[in-house]
Design a protein around this nucleic acid. Sequence first.
DNA 1: CAAGACAACATTGTCGACAATATATTCTTG
DNA 2: CAAGAATATATTGTCGACAATGTTGTCTTG
Lengths: 230, 230
Amino acid sequence: MSIPAEDFTDANGTIADRIFDRLRHAIVVGEIAPGSKISEPVLAARYGISRGPLREAIRRLESSSLVDRKPNVGARVITLTSEQLLEIYAIREALEGMAARLAAEKMPDAGIADLRRLLDQHRNEVAQEAWQAYFQEEGDLDFHFRIVQGSGNRRLANILCNDLYHLARMYRCQFGMRSDRARDALKEHELIVDAISDRDGELAEWLMRRHIRISRRATERRLAEMQRNS
Amino acid sequence: MSIPAEDFTDANGTIADRIFDRLRHAIVVGEIAPGSKISEPVLAARYGISRGPLREAIRRLESSSLVDRKPNVGARVITLTSEQLLEIYAIREALEGMAARLAAEKMPDAGIADLRRLLDQHRNEVAQEAWQAYFQEEGDLDFHFRIVQGSGNRRLANILCNDLYHLARMYRCQFGMRSDRARDALKEHELIVDAISDRDGELAEWLMRRHIRISRRATERRLAEMQRNS
DNA sequence: CAAGACAACATTGTCGACAATATATTCTTG
DNA sequence: CAAGAATATATTGTCGACAATGTTGTCTTG
């Protein structure tokens, strides 16, 4: 929810920047189907802009590895394979584990307090069962997002927030991932925040890595299930 | 040396792609000084191209975080601070540690044999003391590059090879990093290859992380020294 | 003389048109 | 009728020109 890339306020920045955000969002939520062609003429017409800014946006989408471009042929939205998804989980485990450790060492107390408030909110939502899976997932990303920010490593935050989180979100939209793991995940989140609050970096890293590993296994099970049903 | 991005054969691909490679190389080796402005008109004139492809290349340089761009103002080459450099080392430690573990599990025997040949070559160069620091450093990157490739995680390889290695190289050129650590580094490389060859992922990860940590400490010492002399 | 406003300039952002390349269709030929 | 070549079409790549924004230098004025 508070991920900057999500709230593309159409007022600021250049057309290329705005179209990049819009396209990225459209791709991530599946509005533009995976594997479909990114045609410059039709998109330029649809959004009422010229091809110039559009091309720059597409080049950036390529850098974010959301589209696959071939010279003189064009760009297509990537189709996330299960292998690629597991690759992302592996990277997140390494990177976010490190982020949790750094956050335990360097995150300001105010940030930890914010984190606790966020968890309180999640706890209410889960308890009332009034939450929708969508918001639950958003909340999960929000949690991870804040910890990464708290690590203080700007480049780490860039890698995760500009690329990997969008890909993770894309997968969730693509496979209609509904989280029946909300309660467990919340508990894991709470333990992580406790460790960070105790400034126990080693434990925070271990908990975060396990959290992501569990999440990956749940995904693997789901993928195997889908494989079986198809 | 065998890093794909380095040999920009001017024959294939579009102008935008070629100019991206050329600019990246020019920035990395310091041909375009850190902090200097990336002026579209002057670069278009210098390379004899139009501004269109150039702009796309600049957008991609921005995605690689080699330039810093402000809307309606322009782009400037980033200036690597020592903090940013240490951030990169931290990320490399996490990511390449993982890569070494995966390589131990999945790298084909042929790849390991290639790795050994590479180390033989390095050993000769070091023994003859006929090596120049430049090639030594290139060889180091080549070693890391191959292990990352051997991990089989394509996205991991992209993150490291498309962004972080270029930044690391940029730093080395920027600070005129001469390696008096070649002998030790070679020994560490050999241990890592031994672990991979033994399919001991845990050890390979540990050795790789330590290798990068030692390298980071050497860099920190050098930075402190430079700080003192200035 | 200093500080702020104004104007001239340069640079970036955007657009439409043309050239080069790839894909799809049609035609020929065994 | 099938397979391949040649053409036709559409899309991408590139370019030069115009509009919008930032910057810089100058001029006025307290």
